[in-house]
Simulated assay, not measured.
Amino acid sequence: MKKRILAIDDDKELLEVFPMIFNDNDYDLKCLTDVSDLDTLIDDFKPDLILLDIWIGKVDGRVVCNYLKSHEKTVKIPIILVSGVEIDIDDAHCTPDAIIQKPFDIKLLITIVEELLLQ
């Protein structure tokens, strides 16, 4: 069964790149540009991993990360925080499983995704 990845980012160009990366690597991908109805989408899609932008419009992705990590149904879903600025995981003010900086190396992203999905 294909692993499911939920990508949440307001960068439409990046959301066009994610399918090229993940569909070629046998993942089922769903992309969002905002977090409205996030709980319903997670219930329906049941992602195995979430790629989460640090800023989604005016929404702080770190707040979304903390929200997801504080709920029983989503606490075990690995979250990769995607940031346009350099940020250390210890200074993120949230508890992502990994942080990757834009622009990122595609091979590095795939490696991190695969490592988190194996845990």
Rank of each mutant, 00 (worst) to 15 (best):
H71R: 15
W55K: 14
L49V: 02
D34V: 01
M1Y: 12
I112P: 06
L49N: 12
D44L: 08
K58P: 02
I77D: 09
M20N: 12
I100L: 14
M20C: 05
W55V: 03
G57E: 07
K3D: 03
K76A: 12
E16A: 12
I79V: 15
L81I: 10
I21H: 09
E72V: 05
D88Y: 07
I99N: 10
K69D: 05
I106N: 08
W55F: 12
K58F: 07
I21F: 04
K3W: 06
F22T: 06
L52N: 09
Y67K: 14
L6M: 13
L41S: 00
L109Y: 11
D90P: 00
D10F: 01
T33Y: 13
T74R: 06
V59I: 15
V75R: 13
K3T: 03
I54G: 00
M1H: 09
D97Q: 10
I50Y: 08
L41A: 00
I54N: 11
C31W: 06
G57T: 03
L81G: 10
H93K: 14
L49Y: 11
E72C: 00
H93R: 12
V113M: 09
I8N: 10
L81A: 12
L6W: 06
D26H: 14
G84Q: 01
I89G: 08
C65P: 06
A92E: 10
I89N: 10
Q119M: 11
L14P: 08
K69H: 08
I54S: 12
Q101D: 00
D26P: 01
L15K: 11
E72I: 11
L108S: 08
V35A: 05
A98R: 14
I8Y: 08
D39E: 13
D91P: 00
T74E: 08
I42P: 09
L108C: 06
I87L: 15
D26F: 04
I8M: 04
K30C: 06
D60Q: 05
D90L: 11
M1C: 02
A92V: 10
R62V: 03
L118Y: 07
N25R: 14
T95N: 13
D43E: 14
D9L: 01
D37N: 13
K2I: 00
L6I: 07
E13C: 03
K30S: 05
E114H: 13
K3F: 02
L6H: 09
D43C: 04
L51P: 11
E115G: 05
L52I: 03
I79Q: 07
L38C: 04
L41H: 11
L38Q: 06
V63C: 05
L29M: 01
D9P: 11
I42S: 03
E86K: 14
M20Q: 13
L81T: 10
V35I: 15
I99R: 00
I77T: 15
D105Y: 02
R62E: 05
V63T: 12
L38D: 04
R4W: 00
D10L: 00
D39P: 03
V64I: 15
D26S: 13
F22W: 03
T33Q: 13
R62L: 05
K76Q: 13
T74M: 04
T33G: 05
Q101V: 15
L41I: 14
I8K: 08
V59M: 01
R4A: 08
D60M: 07
L81E: 10
D34L: 00
D39A: 05
L51E: 01
T40S: 12
T40G: 02
S70M: 03
S83I: 07
K46H: 13
D91C: 03
V63F: 04
T111Q: 15
Q101L: 07
V75N: 04
W55R: 13
D105V: 07
